[in-house]
Simulated assay, not measured.
Amino acid sequence: MSAELSRPWFVYLVRAANGALYCGISDNPQRRFAMHQRGRGARFFHTSPARELAYVEACADKGTALRRERAIKRLAKPAKEALVAAGAGDCL
Score class of each variant (00 low, 15 high):
residue 2 S to C: 11
residue 53 L to R: 03
residue 78 P to F: 01
residue 36 H to K: 01
residue 76 A to W: 04
residue 35 M to K: 13
residue 7 R to H: 14
residue 11 V to L: 03
residue 43 R to W: 01
residue 86 A to G: 09
residue 62 K to M: 15
residue 83 L to Y: 12
residue 12 Y to C: 09
residue 64 T to D: 12
residue 62 K to C: 14
residue 17 A to M: 05
residue 77 K to G: 01
residue 30 Q to Y: 05
residue 90 D to M: 15
residue 8 P to I: 13
residue 23 C to E: 03
residue 75 L to G: 04
residue 68 R to S: 15
residue 42 A to H: 12
residue 26 S to V: 03
residue 64 T to I: 04
residue 83 L to F: 13
residue 25 I to F: 06
residue 41 G to W: 00
residue 72 I to G: 00
residue 82 A to D: 10
residue 45 F to V: 10
residue 41 G to H: 01
residue 87 G to D: 04
residue 6 S to D: 15
residue 56 V to M: 06
residue 30 Q to A: 14
residue 68 R to C: 13
residue 31 R to S: 01
residue 57 E to F: 00
residue 22 Y to C: 04
residue 37 Q to C: 14
residue 33 F to R: 01
residue 17 A to D: 11
residue 59 C to W: 07
residue 33 F to S: 00
residue 38 R to D: 13
residue 34 A to E: 10
residue 33 F to I: 06
residue 46 H to Y: 10
residue 42 A to N: 13
residue 64 T to A: 15
residue 1 M to Y: 14
residue 76 A to F: 07
residue 17 A to R: 12
residue 89 G to W: 10
residue 8 P to S: 13
residue 8 P to V: 13
residue 46 H to D: 13
residue 27 D to V: 05
residue 87 G to T: 04
residue 8 P to N: 15
residue 71 A to R: 09
residue 41 G to N: 08
residue 32 R to M: 02
residue 15 R to Y: 08
residue 50 A to P: 03
residue 73 K to G: 04
residue 33 F to N: 05
residue 77 K to C: 03
residue 76 A to G: 03
residue 32 R to S: 06
residue 68 R to T: 14
residue 92 L to A: 15
residue 57 E to M: 12
residue 51 R to T: 09
residue 79 A to L: 00
residue 60 A to Q: 08
residue 49 P to F: 06
residue 79 A to Q: 13
residue 9 W to Q: 09
residue 82 A to G: 13
residue 32 R to W: 08
residue 70 R to S: 09
residue 25 I to R: 05
residue 70 R to L: 11
residue 3 A to N: 14
residue 41 G to C: 03
residue 44 F to M: 08
residue 45 F to E: 02
residue 50 A to L: 07
residue 72 I to Q: 01
residue 25 I to H: 04
residue 79 A to R: 08
residue 41 G to L: 02
residue 39 G to D: 03
residue 7 R to V: 11
residue 51 R to F: 02
residue 41 G to M: 04
residue 85 A to V: 00
residue 73 K to L: 13
residue 38 R to A: 14
residue 70 R to I: 09
residue 71 A to S: 12
residue 45 F to Y: 13
residue 52 E to D: 10
residue 90 D to N: 15
residue 59 C to P: 13
residue 65 A to L: 07
residue 30 Q to P: 06
residue 85 A to I: 05
residue 47 T to N: 15
residue 36 H to M: 11
residue 39 G to T: 07
residue 37 Q to W: 01
